[in-house]
Design a protein around this nucleic acid. Sequence first.
RNA 1: UGGCGGAUCGUCUAAUGGCAGGAUAGAGGAUUCUGACUCCUCCAGUCUAGGUUCGAGUCCUAGUCCGCCAGCCA
Length: 563
Amino acid sequence: MNDTTTPGADFIRDIIAQDLAERLNGGRLHTRFPPEPNGYLHIGHAKSICLNFGVAAEHPGGLCNLRFDDTNPEKEDVEYVDSIQEDVRWLGFDWEERIYYASDYFPSLCRFAEALILAGKAYVCDLSAAEMRDYRGTLTEPGRESPYRERTVEENLDLFRRMRAGEFPDGSRVLRARIDMASPNMNMRDPALYRIRRVTHHRTGDDWVIYPTYDFAHGLSDALEGITHSLCTLEFEDHRPLYDWFLDNLEVPARPRQIEFSRLSLEYTVMSKRKLNALVRAGVVRGWDDPRMPTISGLRRRGFTPESIRQFCRLIGISKSPNRVEYALLENCLRTDLDARAPRAMAVLNPLRVVIVNFPEDRVEELTAPAHPQNEAMGTRRLFFTREILIEQEDFRESASKEYKRLVLGGEVRLRNGYVIRCLEAVKSDAGEVIALRCEYDPATLNVNPVGRKVRGVIHWVSASRCVVGEVRLYAPLFHVPEPDALKGEIAEQVNPDSMTVLADCHLEPGLADPRRDFAYQFERLGYFFRDPDSTPEHPVFNRAVSLRDTWAKIEKQQAGAG
RNA sequence: UGGCGGAUCGUCUAAUGGCAGGAUAGAGGAUUCUGACUCCUCCAGUCUAGGUUCGAGUCCUAGUCCGCCAGCCA
């Protein structure tokens, strides 16, 4: 897939181009992707990754760091650190040697804190969390100044050092910036800079009992790394004055600029790590990488390609507008990518037995089919035609209007990559259901259309004896409403109970016994399918990443609605 | 009754005072050994009301609606 179609300039790229033109920061461009390692990355993070790494790659000398914003050990874990790196790499981005951790800056941050204390711009506050909330005021009323706000520099320095030395219990004191308790911006009402937490950190162990807050750590980490453009989502807009306040009041080596954009919302799914975590914990999905999850690992397991996700991020663009992107757009990106590249195969999901009465019982005929109908370079594959074959149950009707382009009693269809067959008889059970078909084949129709008559259509099939039996999992959206965030109550109780359908008696063409593990196949007429890691050599398991566009299903639905 | 931000086809997104364009979805058609892909055609939009201007999606004024903010989360 061509990654460069529709470059899609946006307001952030415009700002950056202008900054570069004005030789701001000496003409340097340096961004960063700053995840907190407290969960798996999702498609919303992909948007940020594509922006940050993308914008850096577009300019000569542009760089993008990977930085873990690991300032809250209570929620963080190395499991997430590892998965995040894997996901960013898989998406196709490279931070080279520039992998950083906010926790690496804890000593520097401490020095910054002391500098603020020395300047009379930070103080140790003994208010409890509840008292602090009370003193903070409300959205419409100013807050009140803490009784500890006027401590001397010496006292503050002493207290802060003793906080760090572990002399005080958890939560008993915080270091606060001394700004303005009457600010209409709540973030400026003497925000907390450091809190006491005796929690083992996944990188620094028990070295620290005080940890910096996001606001204090983030902008200063940016400055320490020489970041020029700090791109983040809209909910941090209110934090920008504070971000700038730290840069203005401390001696920092660089002057990064924070720019905010809208986070991604996708129809029929949730995006908050809290909610995704709840789904995992409640067991309604099989893990962070469940193919129904909007996580990078879930999309990967489902069969999405990095290219399709990057293309999606390109198409949705970057803006500050509220948005909720249609799920169909994501699916379309995958289809477009896979249509060009996915090898073709045949698989029957709901089998119906067909006996070719004029084909000898012991004969096995080898057929050749292209791996891709529009791309000869992808080569060919071998199929086996036998007296007994399997077709899709829904590809046969005893009678149907001529709009139905499949097999009917007495009618002819072509078996994809094979012969034309005519249905002579439907064999029924005592209950009256069709359990098998008796058909005859026309030996003159291999790679040749019959003369003087037109077949109804083309259906897929597999040999009943020369095939492998496997499992196929079909997926529907995790939620049945386009905006699940608006649902009330426990998120785990709201998931679509039919979000996964397991078909255990699927018959696949022989080549699928040992499928490629890096890429999806197109099962012709059904969609794109990707081998699931639950597969064993004896029992392949495939996930349907996305169906093909299904015009017939749409017609049938309309007719059902009209009738 | 506080602060910050946002509003353009159904959806996402361009247009930086000068032809409202693209993508996707939708409708119709062509083609077809995938009811796929591809190709062609069509439908469809500037939140409201005033104002400035030769000219406004863009600037001004007043509204409306939506989002975020009262963690020692990020």
